[in-house]
Design a protein around this nucleic acid. Structure first.
Length: 256
DNA sequence: TGGACACTAACCTGCACCGG
DNA sequence: CCGGTGCAGGTTAGTGTCCA
């Protein structure tokens, strides 16, 4: 069972706030301009009531710009990032839902294997547990999550409000197949996210920590514990330039 | 069972913006 | 025009646990 003790009140504002904070997070739907403070204020004022209500904010622009410390500029920025978040890829969307055991990696793996939200929400336990890197625990959590009426409503509301998770694309090539990269330190040529996306694009994996399975650690200035660990484990260490040189010819890299 | 990883917490810096 | 606030984005460190 779940190790968490949750407030039994479904509408518990603290719980709703946490769910929304998770949903808009960087690695999830990535909605800029909606942080903890604003979420709590919006909840208090009734502009937010649940996760889907995020997507009703744009229609209330006129009311929002009259709020203290919110002007046209910030409200318009917020609305733009809400609109932009409607087409995040399916893996991020799954992560955003807050299903226990489903994080960045599992979300991506499930999305890649099952392709569509419809397939995922209707998948039975056996289908789920057969997937790569999905064990019995995770499979059960997913199935239970989609069996809850409240969760179904959230998903349906989101879709009705225009959220359209896009099917994740498969890798463009297999140049990095079977390889795992870890990025650390201050990256100057590209953002961490862009770097990890590159690895995936060419069929490799991006991990957060160095292990003996790591192909190479790409270290920028300021690298700390991971660099030390890589040296201990005798894992290859390279600079950003060296990493870029490994990319298949002619691949476009957007600067940081 | 243990290694690898998911996930969290906490911190820092720099920036955009509102409002005095 | 500048100060304060909140957020983005970057990072390390640490904990718990999934799954091969």
């Amino acid at each position: 069972g779940s190790p968490f003790v949750l407030c039994p009140n479904r509408a518990c504002p603290a719980q709703v706030s946490m769910k929304i904070q998770h949903f808009v997070g960087r690695k999830m739907m990535d909605i800029d301009g909606l942080g903890e403070k604003l979420i709590d204020r919006f909840l208090e004022l009734g502009f937010l009531t649940d996760v889907p209500s995020i997507y009703r904010l744009p229609s209330r622009r006129n009311e929002l710009i009259t709020l203290e410390r919110l002007g046209e500029q910030s409200v318009d920025n917020l609305i733009r990032s809400i609109e932009a978040s409607k087409e995040r890829d399916l893996g991020r969307f799954l992560f955003a839902l807050g299903i226990p055991e489903v994080g960045e990696r599992s979300g991506r793996d499930i999305a890649r294997d099952l392709r569509t939200l419809d397939a995922i929400r209707h998948a039975d336990y056996d289908t789920l547990v057969a997937l790569n890197n999905i064990g019995p625990r995770t499979a059960a959590e997913i199935q239970e999550w989609f069996a809850e009426e409240e969760n179904i409503r959230v998903v349906d509301d989101l879709l009705a409000l225009g959220v359209k998770p896009v099917e994740s694309e498969g890798p463009e090539s297999l140049d990095f197949a079977g390889q795992t990269y870890v990025f650390t330190g201050k990256l100057e040529k590209f953002s961490r996210e862009a770097a990890e996306a590159l690895v995936l694009r060419f069929g490799g994996k991006a991990a957060g920590s160095v292990s003996k399975n790591t192909t190479a650690l790409v270290a920028g200035p300021g690298a700390g514990s991971k660099l030390k660990k890589a040296e201990e484990l005798k894992v290859a260490v390279m600079t950003e330039e060296e990493f870029l040189a490994m990319l298949p010819e002619g691949s476009l890299v957007e600067p940081a």
